[in-house]
Design a protein around this nucleic acid. Sequence first.
DNA 1: CCTACCGATCGGTAGG
DNA 2: CCTACCGATCGGTAGG
Lengths: 198, 198
Amino acid sequence: MGEVLSSSSRKEQVIRVAAELFREKGYVASSMRDLAQKLGIEAASLYSHIKSKEEILHILCFDMAADFMASLEEVEKQQDLPASEKLRKGIIGHIQVMAQDLTASAVFMNEHRHLSQPSLRDFLLMRIRYINRFKGMIEEGVATGEFKKSIDKKLAVMTLFSSLNWMPMWYDPKAAIEPVELGFQLADMLINGLKQNK
Amino acid sequence: MGEVLSSSSRKEQVIRVAAELFREKGYVASSMRDLAQKLGIEAASLYSHIKSKEEILHILCFDMAADFMASLEEVEKQQDLPASEKLRKGIIGHIQVMAQDLTASAVFMNEHRHLSQPSLRDFLLMRIRYINRFKGMIEEGVATGEFKKSIDKKLAVMTLFSSLNWMPMWYDPKAAIEPVELGFQLADMLINGLKQNK
DNA sequence: CCTACCGATCGGTAGG
DNA sequence: CCTACCGATCGGTAGG
């Protein structure tokens, strides 16, 4: 994803280094001079690769969004699965997409609000649609009796996404646990809870 | 919590309005001129109430931290409770503290990283100590057999805090559900999971 | 709480 | 990719 230009390789490098900077200091506190220094060039030279500071943020946020959408579509193709299995696969897919680029994931989560209009509106619309498709899985699970009738669906889906989206803040890719296993355990905790079932 | 000065009422108003601004735009993107305008005064006049922009952030973050600590200490006094009940009460207490000031809670969560040293170190140390006390409850629950032996304790406690800390981002205080009930349901979801137990 | 102001830094452009 | 530069805005101070 992203745009393919003749200078795409250097542009991608600029974006990758910018993502690290944005993650560390936040988008607003990261200056184009900081970014240029990390790349060993002058600030003005950045503009031969990108149109603006915001273009970088836009690419980071919308590329991640596209990856999340593609992952979810794979899960939704499997229409015959029980809702709890669809949810589990959706969670694992979401975690895998994040694990592919933890830096961009952190920027996606923490910095998207600095997009200006109309991009911000587009972004938020995509996000609400994505969340609602997970909410649909939970509702389906309640309807089939897999999940409790007593759950507050909004609370359930927001708790789910809180857990998922904070993962880049604490997950150490050098740790023993792999992304798929992490997704599996996270899904287990949310679906089955901490409690030992007798 | 908070400093008591002769001008404390006006100072508190400055801090409350700043919290709203920081929540909306982020700390770095909020200018002292924005804040002054919201208060109907000139930017320079702010400095008769506060020492610096960062002092406001410092007060917001450390006052919230003190409230969280006080709430947790109340729970830990009840040493005879089973671990799962301690955890439930800890969760409800955390949610109640946040619900008392959703704006400051959002700033606490999203903007603390803009504290400079040594405040940032102090803040992060307090936070890790707080989290570890919840981790202790989970470990106790595993030891007593209340919780599953198979759970990854780091994942469990980080999932817990992800869910708690994002609450200010989506909870609508005008909604039907009250903070204590919200805490109760959140604890139920994390402890018992979504699944219908046969 | 105000007027008047400061040095620093910001994102970005012109022109090569 | 560079030099040279721009207008705007930043947090904060002096002095009242």
